[in-house]
Computed example of a mutant assay.
Amino acid sequence: MNKFFATFLDVLFPPLCHLCRAFIPDAGPLHICPACRERMPAVAHPLCPVCGIPFLGVGDDHVCGACRQSQPDFTAARAALLYEGECRELIHAYKYRYKTHLRRPLALLTAAPLRDFVAACASELIVPVPLHVRRLRERGFNQAVLLGEIWSREWGVPLERGAMRRIRWTEPQITLTAAQRRDNVKGAFDVRDAGVVKGRRVLLVDDVYTTGSTVKECAHVLKAAGASEVAVVTVARAVES
């Protein structure tokens, strides 16, 4: 696209911040203004090398109490952003207000900071956390699949959209306690074709890691189907205050 045509488009469709709607002269691919971007803090060290939960203060990475008590079936999980403020607002608009164009800034905000983690995992395929068919009809899209399509291109890892399925209806996790979330998703997933994941390193992807109940259950099912390793990537990580 030449400079004149780009300027013409900016006049017709001025680039606005997805969050505050301010005009951005150089919007780039994110369309998030610098002020809003500064209010989207990254997940930073020190953190648990297993589940990726960040710790307050300074120090070295160390395994958190929850992972010491019960080792998950995934090798490691990482998120790019803290699930708060503008990040939460962007994800809610994407997921619950059906603004599917927001998958691009969310995916790109994740792709660069987690590129080295994904490369170290040497994953052979990306598997999105599945939605129940009823939820998919209601929403019209699987947010993890749409993110996974961009991550697949950014990281050069093939996407297996239908590798897993949700075989039982589950209540929305947002309203449940940690214990209720674990019970809610137990036995809710399976692998369509074990041959797709058997002996392979899988990158399980979703939008938010909250208590980890969903990704832990999915990782358990993937390992049971023969996956050699499972790593987890999400856009955001919720941290209890």
Rank of each mutant, 00 (worst) to 15 (best):
Phe5Gln: 11
Phe8Lys: 07
Val11Ser: 08
Leu12Lys: 05
Pro14Arg: 06
Leu19Gly: 01
Cys20Asn: 09
Cys20Gly: 09
Phe23Met: 13
Ile24Phe: 13
Leu30His: 07
Leu30Asp: 05
His31Arg: 11
Cys33Leu: 10
Cys33Arg: 07
Cys36Ser: 09
Glu38Ser: 12
Pro41Trp: 06
Ala42Ser: 13
Ala42Lys: 05
Ala42Met: 06
Ala44Lys: 07
Leu47Gly: 02
Leu47Met: 15
Pro49Met: 08
Val50Glu: 03
Phe55Ile: 00
Leu56His: 04
Gly59Pro: 09
Asp60Ala: 14
Cys64His: 01
Cys67Pro: 01
Ser70Trp: 03
Gln71Met: 12
Gln71Ile: 06
Pro72Gly: 01
Phe74Cys: 04
Thr75Arg: 09
Ala77Arg: 10
Arg78Pro: 01
Leu81Val: 13
Arg88Asn: 05
Glu89Ile: 03
Ile91Ala: 00
His92Gln: 04
His92Arg: 04
Tyr98Met: 08
His101Pro: 05
Arg103Ala: 15
Leu108His: 08
Leu108Glu: 07
Ala111Asn: 12
Pro113Gly: 09
Asp116His: 13
Phe117Thr: 09
Phe117Trp: 07
Cys121Val: 10
Ala122Asn: 10
Ser123Trp: 10
Ser123Gln: 12
Ser123His: 11
Val127Tyr: 06
Pro128Trp: 03
Pro130Thr: 11
Pro130Lys: 04
His132Tyr: 13
Arg137Asp: 09
Gly140Ser: 13
Asn142Arg: 13
Asn142Ser: 13
Gln143Asp: 13
Val145Asp: 08
Glu149Tyr: 02
Ile150Gly: 12
Arg153Val: 14
Trp155Arg: 14
Trp155Asp: 11
Arg161Glu: 15
Ala179Leu: 08
Asp183Glu: 14
Lys186Glu: 14
Phe189Gly: 06
Val191Arg: 08
Arg192Thr: 11
Arg192Phe: 02
Asp193Phe: 10
Lys198Thr: 06
Arg201Trp: 01
Val202Met: 06
Val202Asp: 04
Ser213Ile: 02
Thr214His: 02
Thr214Ile: 02
Val215Asn: 03
Cys218Asp: 01
Ala219Gly: 00
His220Thr: 07
Leu222Gln: 01
Leu222Val: 02
Gly226Lys: 11
Glu229Cys: 04
Val230Thr: 05
Val235Glu: 01
Val235His: 01
Ala236Met: 04
